[in-house]
Amino acid sequence: MSVDAAYLSPSLPASAGKDTDVTSVPARALGRKLAVFALRQGSLAVFIGVLVYFSIAAPFFFTVGNIGNVLGQSAIAGVLAIGLTIVIIAGGSNVVTGGIDLSLAANMGLSAAVYASLVQAGQGDAVAIIGALGTGLLIGAVNAAAITLAGIVPLLATLAVMNVVAGLELVLTQNTVVPASTEFLSTLSASGPFGIPVLAYLLLVFTALVAAVVQYTPVGLRLYAVGEFPEAARAAGLRVKLFVSGAFLASGLCGGLSGILSVSYLSGSTTGAGDMLLPVVVTALLGTVFSRRLVPTIGGTLLATLFVSFLINGFQLLNISSTLVSGVQGLLILLVVSATTLLKRKGNQ
């Protein structure tokens, strides 16, 4: 959407008309700023409001143990959503031709299966970790090649790769649960300091690392440049394809990492990884609302992941049917996107 807007406004003569009413432009800009501010703070306010409500309604909600558990449970989806966010940043927000990686959830499934199978085959954790991360990286590489070399639009390339990867997972596991338990895996799924799960710490550290690279380094800045206006980035001498490939490799690696996390969390690899796909897509897209300029950010994605997890957790504690969760997710995304779209439209007029 923002890419479209960016393309359209400079290239269309008709949009020159927007400057005729010069006097009111600053006022409108201010109004828009206020509205964006309200939306951003509003979404944070809603987040906090929901947390406060759950804390009052369900006394157990606001305890270190529960919050730690929610963080731990968010680790798998969080790492996936962060991978997707990197792709969305580098590919732009046009979901069909730009940044999307539909193969992420299947990637997680296959990486987990590879890890569990290697452990079953008597290999050590080191080999299994290399196997899982290598699998993820390889999937990312195939995506990158299909998109930058063959020129397939990301939506389709990753869709086809998703099918192949999901099939390979079935071939590897024969559609069964492959149990795996090693010392390393139990350390991961155990509780760490302050009774908070190790997975929770992992999620926070991982987010911090990726956020540091994406939000605070020249590489990250260029990633945004490539995504928001590829033509300009190319004109400025950036190697667009390299950045896009890099983003898909990074997201593949995230898939491999979350595969490892899921093996530890579930004590093995299970089927049905594909069900994670759409929730992860929604989470990554939802994350934009937690950023200052309404763009995808790593921190925003973490907040969105936690928001969804806290909702699910709160519903469970309050005995509200968990079937409502997907509806709430859907409504959230629609609300958020409507609000941002209306704001952008107002800003462009």
């Binding site: 997907s326 509806g327 997710q329 859907g330 629609l334 996107v337």
Partner: peptide, 11 residues
Amino acid sequence: ATLGTLFVGRS
């Protein structure tokens, strides 16, 4: 939009 519809519809 249709992704949102998919989720709301499921619920």
